[in-house]
């Protein structure tokens, strides 16, 4: 039997992962019908579908751990910005295909390390979700990494765009490796991997892909933080307003 503090920490952890997947999947879904080429339109949507799929599993699990009867939709559609726990990186707007790819790669390179380790979690619920997710995320990081290389190395125009996107999004990466007291508890119980361990693996992968993309790794300056505590950018409010419109406008309806 899990003690109440660990249970609370696990709820928060699943919520953070679920929210990050949902918000990022939502962002990618905005591309559907508008991508640079038909094949890539289909590919991006596949990634979006995977991410929303992970979000459903994680939010449903969070609701179960919380034990207050909230299901995936209750959590997705009836929380406002203050209660969302996603990474700031995930909520950044698509801007152009270059920003989308950089955002995706920086996330995927983190997610693949995370789920790989989380599949060995002592918590069976998380381990099961991670075992499924890691297969999909391995493909995501290959896809976004390949595109990062193509566009970094492609033309002068694409190189400049990728460099700018990388510099703009880099300050959102620090938050992925934060650790708070709730995570200390989960790491100690073997439920969650140590973020510091993720960071080393993430650094190595990012360095290798950036080198092939002929892009320089930006310096680790001041990092934007707060998404994990509900302190978000201005972008998330609009995303949620759009996403939650129907359930908010018709609170009694079932869809």
């Amino acid at each position: 039997m899990m003690d109440p503090e660990t249970r609370q920490a696990l709820f928060g952890y699943a919520l953070r992962l679920g929210d990050t997947s949902l918000v990022l999947g939502h962002r990618l879904s905005e591309w559907c019908g508008h991508a640079p080429e038909l094949e890539e339109d289909i590919a991006l949507t596949n990634v979006a579908l995977d991410l929303v799929g992970h979000a459903r599993l994680l939010l449903a699990y969070a609701g179960e751990v919380e034990g207050e009867g909230r299901d995936e939709d209750r959590l997705a559609y009836r929380r406002d910005v203050l209660d969302y726990r996603n990474h700031l990186l995930a909520e950044q707007p698509n801007r152009d295909f270059g920003h989308t790819i950089v955002r995706q790669f920086l996330h995927d390179a983190w997610a693949v390390e995370l789920y790989d380790r989380l599949a060995g979690s002592t918590d069976a619920g998380l381990a099961g979700i991670a075992a499924k997710a890691v297969k999909e995320v391995r493909y995501h990081v290959r896809h976004s990494g390949d595109w990062l290389i193509r566009l970094g190395d492609g033309t002068d125009v694409s190189h400049t765009r990728m460099r700018d996107a990388l510099e703009r999004l880099w300050p959102c990466t620090g938050e992925m490796f934060e650790r708070d007291s709730a995570e200390d508890r989960l790491v100690a119980a073997g439920i969650a991997p140590d973020p510091a361990e993720l960071r080393a693996a993430w650094n190595a992968r990012v360095a290798a892909v950036l080198a092939e993309a002929t892009l320089e790794r930006p310096a680790d300056g001041w990092m934007q933080k707060g998404g994990r505590r509900g302190e978000h950018s201005e972008h998330l409010g609009y995303l949620l307003a759009e996403m939650q419109f129907l359930p908010r406008a018709y609170p009694d309806a079932v869809w």
Binding site: E37, E39, I42, A43, N46, Y139, R142, D146, R150
Partner: peptide, 18 residues
């Protein structure tokens, strides 16, 4: 259509094995 062979393989996975 794909720019290179690796993209062709990935696209084939996404287009023809959904």
């Amino acid at each position: 259509h794909a720019a290179d062979a690796r993209m062709a393989l990935d696209n084939a996975r996404d287009v023809y094995t959904r």
